[in-house]
Design a protein around this nucleic acid. Structure first.
Lengths: 91, 91
DNA sequence: TTGATATATTCAAATGTATCAATATATCAA
DNA sequence: TTGATATATTGATACATTTGAATATATCAA
């Protein structure tokens, strides 16, 4: 994984709200509707949309449209690649 | 690891220069003098000092003073804890 | 001492990010 | 259709981060 990609993923992970979204994604058995996020994050809808976009742009979550809703699931492959990079730092 | 700590570490990792410093730390067999950083990062000394501080504040590197110099080594324990957190996201 | 080197701090400017109100788009339900 | 719901985008404001010049501190070497 190149430095730019590590930078983008790290940036996506560097916010309390976005980390909480990922944690809830795990709780919800790996799939989460966008409108459910406002149940546990106290931000306006555009702000939540912004955070979700950051996670999606970093490929950490994969959006799937279902009618009016968008369902998200974790991208375990990218998360694994990121972890692999971090492990190589330990040489 | 709590959300605040994950946020701080991610933030430290979310910059090209800081990622490069960590990569060089591996190359240099896990120990790096501060003044060596300017060899591979084209920034003024105060900027490099700033970046190193971010990494140290996140406990990703441990500074050790040696006379005028400061030698850094990677904090593998914290890096491991961070990786462990990321792995729990995969449930 | 004095001068040189290594690193840290302060301050200001430029840039980037988070937030939300307003608005747009897309889909559903009646 | 029309009205309601889910999500995205725009634009403005507030806040945070990056950067480097100037300066400070600490240590070494002569």
């Amino acid at each position: 994984m190149d430095v730019r990609k590590v930078e983008r993923i790290s940036k996506a992970l560097s916010d309390q709200s976005r980390i909480t979204i990922l944690k809830q994604l795990r709780e919800k058995e790996d799939c989460l509707y966008c409108h459910e996020i406002s149940d546990f994050i106290d931000l306006a809808q555009p702000s939540i949309s912004h955070h979700v976009k950051q996670l999606a742009d970093a490929d950490l979550i994969i959006p799937g449209k279902e009618g009016r809703n968008v369902k998200y699931r974790l991208n375990k492959v990218v998360l694994d690649e990121y972890v692999t990079f971090l492990n190589t730092l330990k040489s």
